[in-house]
Amino acid sequence: MHEIVTISIGECGNNIGAQFWRDCCTQSNLFVSGHYLDPQVPPPSHLFEEQIGSRFVPRAILLDSDPGTLSNIRNSDLGFIFSPGAYISGSYGAGNSFGTGCYDPDLLELIQEPLQNQIRIQVEKCDQTPNFKLFHSLGGGTGSGTTAFVLMHLQEEYQTSISNCSVLPEPDACVVSPYNCILGLNYLIEYSNAVQCVDNGYLMGKLKDVGKIINQYISSQLIDMFMLEKQWIPKYDEDAEYDQKHFYHSETMWKGEIVTSCPVSDTCAKAIQEIEFGNTKLYNSGVTQSIKQQLDRFDLMFKRKAFVYGHSKCMDEFEYVEASERAHELLEIYENGEDSTLTTD
């Protein structure tokens, strides 16, 4: 079975990642120390690497610009299960700026080399080039900007499947979150083979106890996808032209009426429509309404150049224009795709 390496990015992404790996341990009969409860049933090798002493370590990398969240995970009961080199952090946050998270030379000086080394180490431990799964938010500077940087590196160095679990910010999040969200979305369309969007605003209104409960909900969806014997992995064709790559967008990560998020299941197949979008293939999703909200706010602020000076560090304003155009095209395709044929692929 094809190995999977997860990369948790930013505070939100690492909280989701920590919950995901905690649940993986429970599902795999593992203590959070990495030792198994039942020697007769070893944990899945596509998610865990077996080390000396019958100890299993997640195929995971934890990345953040600010060391605070990683320190909390390292000091928790779960902290010992990850390889010491898996923790990679800067010394300060990205300040809710996509540009800082993606391009800031001081930040990249701290994280770039250890990140690239750790990715290489994880790849070399696998029988074949692994698939990568990224956990992150689109609302913050690290979750959007540093994720974009990671996507560019993975696409350049490794010809394999890259997928994202991306949390969309709620409408009343940080004032510059629309900038981060739409700029980050542009890189997802460009470099990711698959995206499952999580509508944070929807879940906050749906669930009584937010925070940890939302992370548990998201984790349960991810477990359904990656603990199954038949994984849902988007295909990667190394010979494909740019306009033949795939981008999947699934409603099943957030809509409470869907029982499972695994797109190979009959339940999910009935809820998915395939839509052509130039260089992408899309699955229809009600989460596009949240993207539209963020895009409307993005366009309004950028038209007035509101907060652009403080937000666009290390960036050219043309990138804002390009991101807006790509997002508008994305939404237009969704709106025109209501009669698309159902697919079970």
Rank of each mutant, 00 (worst) to 15 (best):
G211S: 10
T142E: 06
G85P: 03
Q196L: 07
V175R: 12
K281E: 03
D77G: 04
N200V: 02
Y248S: 02
P42I: 00
E332S: 13
V259L: 14
E11L: 10
P234Q: 12
E274C: 11
K212A: 01
I111A: 03
V308C: 09
E11K: 11
V287R: 07
F82T: 01
Q221I: 01
Y179P: 01
M1S: 11
I258A: 05
D209N: 14
T129R: 12
G68E: 12
S161G: 07
Y283P: 01
N336F: 06
G90L: 13
S163T: 06
D127F: 13
M204D: 03
V259F: 14
K133H: 06
D104H: 15
N96A: 07
L138I: 05
I4P: 01
N164S: 07
I61L: 12
G10T: 04
D66W: 15
Q294W: 07
T6W: 09
G286R: 14
G17R: 06
F82Q: 03
G85M: 11
E325F: 14
I213C: 08
Y242R: 15
I7C: 04
L108G: 04
W232S: 01
I119G: 01
C102E: 00
R326C: 02
V123P: 07
G337I: 06
D237K: 13
S177W: 04
L207R: 07
S54K: 14
S71W: 08
P105L: 10
E257N: 12
I4S: 00
W21N: 00
Y242S: 05
S91G: 02
P234V: 06
E274R: 15
N29C: 08
N284E: 04
G139D: 02
N284V: 01
P114Y: 08
L62C: 01
D66L: 13
S71F: 09
K245N: 04
S89V: 00
P105G: 03
N29L: 12
Y179L: 03
T146Y: 08
T267N: 13
F307N: 01
S261F: 06
E276K: 15
S71C: 06
N15F: 03
E317D: 12
A327N: 02
N131I: 06
K208T: 02
V41F: 14
E276H: 14
C102H: 08
T147A: 07
I73Q: 06
V195R: 11
Y191D: 00
G95Q: 09
V123T: 07
D266A: 13
W232G: 00
K313V: 06
K208E: 03
L228P: 01
L134F: 00
Q116S: 00
E50W: 11
Q19C: 04
D243Q: 14
Q51Y: 10
M204E: 02
S290R: 15
R304L: 05
V5H: 09
G139S: 06
I272N: 08
K212G: 02
Q216P: 00
D316C: 12
L70H: 03
D64Y: 11
T344E: 10
Q244K: 15
E332F: 12
P43R: 10
Y236T: 05
Q294S: 09
S312R: 09
Q231K: 15
A240L: 09
Y242E: 05
A86W: 09
K245T: 03
S97L: 05
Q273S: 08
V308R: 10
I333C: 07
F132W: 13
T146E: 02
I52W: 09
